[in-house]
Simulated scan of single mutants.
Amino acid sequence: MRQAATTLVIETSGAGLVEVTVPIRRWVAGQGLETGLLTVFCRHTSASLTIQENADPDVQADLLRFFRRLVPETQSLYDHTAEGPDDMPAHIRSALTGVSLSIPVMDGAPALGTWQGVYLFEHRARPHRREIVLHLFGE
């Protein structure tokens, strides 16, 4: 068994989903492992990861609108408000969606479905520089 790890740096433009499937696939392919398990980990508490449809951009727009309704940016609802009205809602959205994914690797590639893509879900309103750690274990 072998292991490999790297960090991807993703620049966001504010709240929304940023697809990171291509750089993940590229990195996995370069490791020379045929079978294994890929862990994708977001090193932040106000952004998260999700696997979603990557064929229709309406899916990402609908998800963003849904989470804005589910977790409103109303400061009177929260004690943690020092970093602005979007900070605590971003933490809650991140807790709901998660910061880690496990993806099987088969035939040297992540075993994603036809319409599945891996997304960094930015929950803050302003642009951020986010880090995603990839760890691959396999043979």
Results as ranks from 00 to 15, higher is better:
residue 137 F to Q: 14
residue 25 R to Y: 02
residue 91 H to G: 03
residue 5 A to P: 00
residue 132 I to V: 15
residue 3 Q to W: 01
residue 84 G to R: 06
residue 69 R to Y: 03
residue 101 L to R: 11
residue 93 R to S: 03
residue 48 S to N: 04
residue 24 I to F: 04
residue 46 S to Y: 08
residue 81 T to D: 05
residue 15 A to Q: 15
residue 19 E to I: 08
residue 134 L to T: 08
residue 20 V to S: 00
residue 16 G to A: 04
residue 24 I to M: 05
residue 92 I to L: 15
residue 96 L to G: 05
residue 139 E to C: 10
residue 28 V to L: 13
residue 61 A to Q: 11
residue 27 W to L: 07
residue 105 V to D: 00
residue 51 I to L: 11
residue 11 E to L: 09
residue 75 Q to R: 14
residue 8 L to W: 09
residue 94 S to Y: 00
residue 75 Q to D: 13
residue 118 V to Q: 01
residue 49 L to C: 04
residue 10 I to V: 15
residue 69 R to A: 06
residue 28 V to A: 13
residue 49 L to E: 05
residue 133 V to H: 11
residue 79 D to F: 00
residue 6 T to Q: 06
residue 128 H to T: 13
residue 23 P to L: 10
residue 120 L to I: 01
residue 108 G to Y: 09
residue 119 Y to G: 02
residue 20 V to E: 00
residue 102 S to I: 03
residue 14 G to P: 08
residue 12 T to Q: 01
residue 70 L to K: 14
residue 61 A to S: 02
residue 53 E to K: 06
residue 13 S to K: 13
residue 83 E to C: 00
residue 127 P to M: 10
residue 36 G to K: 11
residue 26 R to D: 10
residue 103 I to Q: 07
residue 90 A to L: 03
residue 130 R to E: 07
residue 54 N to G: 10
residue 84 G to M: 03
